[in-house]
């Protein structure tokens, strides 16, 4: 069963066709990441697949065919974390609870528990204007997961965070999605982030040029040609092997040092 189906997707932006007869199906509970060069249409594709943008083509979300009359119904199915998430409530707590009136103690405690998981309990009463960028993104994450939607859209959500924070948040989301039957569609410019995905889609010239898992993606695609960079350890490992300084692939710095000092 598929949570997202797009059939012969075409979409024009200012008279330019950015997708050409794209066919995509995404099964429930999958974690899919779309990669590709700048301005190729990654964010636009995510918006179309989640029902945020309506097209003339046939797109279904959670078995509902998207059209201009069922936007609100579709909106119940997904939440979005973007690279900039603006907040309009007064405090963090109110923002996460989406300014709901008559909130139960149970719901407040649920929020506190989540804040605590990220060591951010101190932010509960903080005004949303005083958050650091990282805090802001984590609050956006908590807001996105608290209602356990069927679909979470990560639109370059964590690219501006340092690599350790990114790892922490992707791990958390992957785990959460796994335990709660949630599908994730995302986009990123960092190849290290792809480790958490079940499936990688390379968007190129309006088509899906690659559709497979992360390990094969790294092996089959020349990342440098697609606007991506190899992880540092992989780049160094490849070059050291070229000069016969090591004789096997290394993925961590500890491995590299170990192999060189043998």
């Amino acid at each position: 069963m598929n949570i997202i189906e797009a059939h012969k997707l075409n979409y024009k932006v200012k008279n330019k066709n950015i997708f050409h007869d794209l066919d995509i199906t995404i099964p429930y509970n999958e974690f899919v990441t779309v990669v590709g060069k700048n301005s190729v249409g990654k964010s636009t594709l995510l918006k179309i697949l989640s029902g945020q943008i309506i097209t003339d083509s046939k797109v279904s979300v959670d078995n509902i065919e998207v059209n201009k009359f069922n936007i609100e119904e579709i909106m119940q199915r997904y939440t979005v974390i973007s690279s900039y998430n603006e907040f309009f409530s007064r405090t963090v707590l109110e923002e996460i609870l989406q300014d709901k009136r008559n909130v139960s103690v149970f719901e407040v405690n649920k929020v506190k528990k989540l804040l605590d998981e990220f060591n951010l309990l101190y932010l509960e009463k903080m005004t949303v204007q005083n958050l650091s960028y990282a805090e802001n993104q984590i609050i956006a994450l908590i807001k996105a997961i608290i209602k356990k939607p069927k679909l979470i859209v990560l639109d370059n959500a964590f690219s501006k965070l340092d690599i350790d924070k990114r790892k922490e948040l992707y791990s958390y989301l992957k785990n959460f999605a796994s335990n709660n039957g949630i599908t994730i569609i995302s986009t990123t410019n960092n190849p290290e982030d792809l480790r958490f995905s079940d499936r990688v889609l390379l968007l190129k010239n309006g088509k899906i040029d690659y559709d497979g898992n992360y390990e094969n993606f790294i092996k089959e695609i020349d990342l440098n040609k697609e606007g991506l960079k190899y992880p540092w350890e992989v780049e160094v490992s490849n070059k050291l092997m070229m000069y016969d300084l090591i004789d096997k692939d290394c993925f961590t710095i500890e491995d590299l040092v170990g192999e060189l000092c043998k």
């Binding site: 710095i253 500890e254 060189l260």
Partner: peptide, 27 residues
Amino acid sequence: YFINKMKEKGINLDNVDSVNELIKTIY
């Protein structure tokens, strides 16, 4: 981080800033 780890193993590489220079100093 890498240059430091090599230093801990007794190998003194130059304090370079790019991968290409690193490969040269390792070589």
